[in-house]
Amino acid sequence: MTCGSPEPTTRSVAVFTADGVRLSGVVAAPGHDLAVVVGHGFTNNTARPTVQRVLRRLARGRTVIALDFRGHGRSGGRSTLGVDEVLDLAAGVELARRLGHRRIATLGFSMGASVVVRHAALTPEAERPDAVVAVSGPARWYERETPPMRRLHWLVEEPAGRLLARALGVRLAAAWREVPPSPVELARRVPPTPLLLVHGDRDHYFPAEHGRSLHLAAGGGAELWLERGMRHAESATSPELVDRMGAWLDANAPASSDRRQDGHVA
């Protein structure tokens, strides 16, 4: 933060998902009109300095709600790598509604980016967030073309890797019984909800082709920012980029009631 900027007021919260998982997280800068529900990346949580830095910056002029995904941090349950985490994000959106927010947006990083896209696509339009931002997100599952993703697959697929994941603070669920629809398969369902895709041209987990594929799949109903020199997710997100994403949300997240009056929601 710049010198002299006040720290946002932050309090801890706990909520339950529709399938009964207890999630822990934080609400920062309560009381603003726009609430942004943030989904972190795999192995991250709201206590990590890189995540906290983004949350504090985003909370300048907005309420920020961030919950540790299941199997991460102080939350219960086990990580399903972005599938049941849609219920976790929905719990954050519902908390924003209970707090009285008329304007609600979602913003996710990496695994959290896949979650915000899938959540918007799978939620009835009248119940969706008012805008969605996906940063460094995968277009498809089973990316193995980059060394970090090959290491991640070892982490989640091999017994020794799953033990290491637990040491890293992630509790993993069993392997998928059925492969769920991927973000690129669902992206076309997100519009007319405003969708911003942010991807680094030096992303070492998911190459920039993932961002382009999501943009193409959205059928022109999304905006794509290819960030020069940016690598992956929260650790690569500069304060300046947080400010630009925040300004985009300020301008592109009309209240749900306003969208209904404009006839944009069935």
Rank of each mutant, 00 (worst) to 15 (best):
G137I: 08
T193S: 02
T106G: 09
A120K: 13
A187P: 13
V86A: 05
S235G: 11
E223L: 08
L152G: 03
R150V: 04
A14Q: 15
L58P: 09
A18T: 15
R228S: 05
A167P: 04
F16Q: 15
G263A: 10
D243Q: 12
G112H: 05
L122D: 07
S235N: 08
I104E: 03
A91N: 12
P49F: 03
L81A: 04
T237V: 11
A134I: 00
L122V: 12
V156S: 10
L197V: 10
T2V: 13
R260H: 13
A90C: 05
E178Q: 15
E157C: 12
S182V: 14
T50C: 07
T123A: 00
T123M: 13
V54M: 12
V51Q: 00
A121C: 10
A247C: 08
A167C: 12
R11N: 14
M230S: 01
V27K: 09
A247Y: 00
V179E: 12
I65N: 02
R78C: 04
H210F: 06
E227K: 03
A218E: 03
P49E: 11
H204Q: 08
A105R: 05
T146E: 06
S24T: 14
T63R: 01
E7T: 15
G20K: 13
D262V: 02
R166P: 12
V132A: 05
Y205G: 00
A174D: 13
E185I: 11
T123W: 03
P8Q: 10
N44V: 04
Q52F: 04
P6C: 13
